[in-house]
Amino acid sequence: MEQATVKWFNAEKGFGFIERENGDDVFVHFSAIQGDGFKSLDEGQAVTFDVEEGQRGPQAANVQKA
Rank of each mutant, 00 (worst) to 15 (best):
F30K: 06
S31A: 06
G14V: 04
A66C: 13
G16S: 02
N62L: 06
K65I: 13
I18Y: 01
L41M: 04
Q64C: 09
Q3Y: 15
S31K: 07
V28N: 02
W8S: 02
E43L: 12
A32L: 01
D50F: 15
A4L: 03
R56H: 12
G44L: 03
E53H: 12
E53G: 07
F9E: 00
A61R: 12
A46Y: 13
A60Y: 01
N62C: 09
V63S: 02
T48V: 10
L41E: 02
E2Y: 15
I18L: 15
F49D: 00
D24N: 12
A46W: 15
I18A: 02
A4W: 06
Q3L: 14
V28M: 06
A46N: 09
K7N: 03
V47H: 01
K13R: 11
W8I: 03
W8A: 01
E52L: 12
V51A: 05
V28Q: 02
D36R: 11
M1T: 13
Q59D: 02
K39M: 07
E12H: 13
F38C: 11
G23S: 07
F30L: 04
T48R: 11
K7M: 02
D36C: 15
V47T: 03
N62F: 08
V6K: 01
R20F: 07
F15C: 07
D25S: 11
S40H: 11
S31E: 01
F38M: 08
R20M: 09
V6M: 02
T5M: 10
P58A: 09
D50S: 14
K65H: 09
Q34W: 10
E2D: 08
A32Q: 08
E19D: 06
F30N: 02
K39P: 06
D36P: 12
G37V: 07
A4T: 03
G23T: 05
F49C: 06
G44Y: 05
Q59R: 12
E52C: 14
F30E: 01
D42N: 13
V63Y: 00
G57R: 06
V28F: 14
V63E: 01
I18W: 04
G54N: 06
F30D: 00
I33D: 02
F15N: 01
K7P: 00
Q45E: 13
V6D: 00
G44K: 06
F30P: 00
Q45D: 13
R56V: 06
N62K: 08
W8H: 01
A61H: 09
V63L: 05
Q34T: 10
Q64N: 11
G54A: 07
A61E: 05
G35A: 09
K7D: 00
A32R: 05
F49L: 07
D50A: 12
Q55A: 13
Q55N: 11
D24K: 14
R20P: 03
Q45W: 09
E43N: 13
G44V: 03
G16H: 02
A11K: 15
I18V: 05
K7C: 08
G14S: 02
W8V: 03
A46P: 11
R56Y: 14
Q55P: 15
Q55I: 14
G44Q: 04
G37M: 06
K13F: 10
W8C: 10
A60D: 02
P58W: 11
A66K: 12
A32D: 06
P58N: 07
K7Y: 03
D50E: 14
G16N: 02
Q59M: 09
F49P: 02
G35P: 03
R56K: 12
L41C: 06
D50I: 15
G23E: 08
A46M: 13
E19M: 15
Q45L: 07
G54L: 06
N10G: 03
G54F: 06
S31W: 08
D25Q: 14
A11Y: 11
I18K: 01
E21H: 12
K13T: 06
K13D: 02
G57D: 01
D42I: 15
G14Q: 03
D25M: 15
S31M: 07
N62P: 01
D42R: 15
E19T: 15
D36W: 11
Q45F: 05
V26D: 00
S31Q: 05
N22V: 10
I18D: 01
F17W: 07
K39G: 05
M1I: 11
S31F: 06
G57P: 04
A11P: 12
K7Q: 02
F15K: 00
T5D: 04
D24M: 12
V6H: 01
F27W: 05
E21M: 12
F17H: 00
E19Q: 15
Q64F: 10
G16M: 04
Q59V: 10
G14E: 02
A32K: 08
G16Y: 04
G44H: 07
K13C: 10
A11D: 06
V51S: 04
F49T: 01
G35E: 09
L41A: 03
S31L: 08
V26N: 00
E12K: 15
K39Y: 06
A32P: 00
E12N: 12
G35H: 08
V28I: 08
A61S: 10
K65R: 11
F9D: 00
T5S: 08
I33R: 00
A61P: 02
N62D: 02
A61M: 11
E2T: 11
D24L: 12
Q34H: 10
L41W: 04
K65A: 11
V26S: 00
M1S: 14
F38V: 08
V51E: 04
Q34E: 09
E12M: 13
V6Y: 01
F17Q: 00
G14W: 04
A46E: 10
F27E: 00
A61G: 08
E52A: 10
G54E: 04
R56M: 09
F38Y: 11
S40D: 07
E19V: 15
A66I: 15
